[in-house]
Amino acid sequence: MPHSHITESEFSSIGWGIVGTGTIAARFAEDIKYVAGARLAGVSSRSLDRATMFCAQHGGIAYENYTALLDDKNIDAVYIASPNTSHFSIAWEAIAANKSVLVEKPLVTTAEEAERLRAFAAERKVFLMEGVWTRFLPAIEFVKGAIRSGAIGELRSIRGELAFRHAYDPDNRFFDPAQGGGSLLDLGLYLVSLSIFLLGCPDTVTGKWHPAPTGVDMMADIELSFGGVPAFLQCGFDRTGGNWFRIKGSRGSLFLPSPFIGARCVFEAGPVMARIIGILCRNSVTARIFSKLTRKIPIPGVKRHFFDFQGYGLQFEIGAATKAIKEGRIEAPFAPLSESIETIHILEKIRSFPSS
């Protein structure tokens, strides 16, 4: 079993191990360098060659499988970036090994699994968090603060879309039920999780979905109500959408332009300009054009708030998890497991409705 050498200066840092070598794992490895108190300690893959190549580029020790990674005492925390349907079993083993755990969204594929995993982590007093990186971005922190301060007045509604066209392929993870496919788990989760983060748990849930030939959801419409404030959310693999998110208030609106999941700016508009932007955002093409233009050119009646940062943006999620682990917490304040479970419950409820 390999062991990494820890220098005296590293004793206070959290040594992260990554399970998986895909795109999101590489982004995690790149962004961890921006986080004080965190370091990449190792990576595991189903192929030792892939893990070795990954470590040659990003650092850390290569492990032939995640069991070997979990056995190393120099691994303090684990980021699980493996296929969706493997999240539960790997997270369970990591918790059993007393490793702090951050799971790339979705936490797991069913609410029942989420409940079991949360109970096990609580029993073992081990940190567990779902990695919905959007929640931790500075732009989202600004939006939540603006809502709380009443900057846009009384809340009226939320609208959001997240859709990326994918050619149908029954073997692709997006369309394969065995790999946890479907637009709700892949895209709709961001919309629901962000809505819950901003407004709490909804009172009512309705919606509709359309299946791909494999039976997973190709697209879905989600309608939530938060104390009378409606949220209209759309996701899908059938098109490339405007991929924006809007919070409308009585005195104006906040817009997270495309792609909102990695927001680096927020547009704030009064009622008149907000109505115009709302009309533009109904069309995905005009929504993307408007977003690009407004980033570069000031638009009368639109206040721009920029939150640029280095890297991809996962460092804020990594930083929050690292801080919570160092504080001895078993959950992160801004990503409680109750909200992860509620999100999965909502996605399951949408899927329980007859398909269209």
Rank of each mutant, 00 (worst) to 15 (best):
P106W: 10
V132S: 04
W133Q: 15
H3V: 13
L162H: 11
N98Q: 13
A91Y: 02
H345Y: 10
E161S: 13
L194C: 06
G301T: 02
A121C: 01
H210D: 13
R275E: 15
K323D: 11
F127A: 07
G22N: 07
K125G: 08
T206W: 08
G200T: 09
D71W: 04
K99N: 04
K326S: 10
V285R: 12
G262I: 09
A151G: 05
Q57C: 09
F54W: 07
G160S: 01
A332Y: 03
A51N: 01
L254Y: 00
N65L: 05
F245I: 02
R39G: 09
S47F: 03
V19D: 01
I341F: 01
E64K: 14
H58I: 02
L69C: 05
N98Y: 08
K33L: 07
A269W: 00
S352A: 10
I350V: 12
L293E: 05
G60T: 04
G150M: 05
R156M: 12
E161F: 02
Q57S: 14
G153Y: 03
A111W: 03
D71N: 15
S157R: 12
H5C: 10
H345N: 11
L280A: 15
E141G: 14
V126Y: 00
S355W: 14
F28A: 12
I147M: 03
I14H: 06
V132F: 06
S356V: 14
F309G: 09
G252I: 00
P138M: 06
A320Q: 07
I330Y: 06
I18F: 08
M129T: 12
F306C: 11
F226I: 06
A29K: 04
I80L: 00
G242E: 03
P257E: 00
G270S: 11
M219N: 15
T240A: 08
R173V: 15
F309D: 04
L185T: 02
I299R: 08
H58Y: 15
Q179D: 12
N74R: 15
F353R: 10
T240I: 07
T204H: 11
H5V: 13
I344S: 02
S4G: 13
A178V: 05
Q310M: 06
I279H: 13
K296A: 13
T286V: 10
E268V: 09
T110K: 08
H210R: 14
A38N: 02
A81R: 00
H166Y: 14
Q234R: 15
F232P: 01
P298W: 01
S195R: 01
V126G: 00
T206N: 11
D76E: 07
G252Q: 01
A51C: 00
F306G: 04
T52K: 14
H166L: 03
F306R: 14
E342G: 00
P106F: 10
G313K: 02
T109H: 02
L293N: 03
A122M: 08
V143D: 00
G182T: 07
A91D: 05
R46C: 07
A269M: 02
G131C: 01
S340N: 01
A25S: 15
G236E: 08
A332R: 06
R288F: 07
R50E: 13
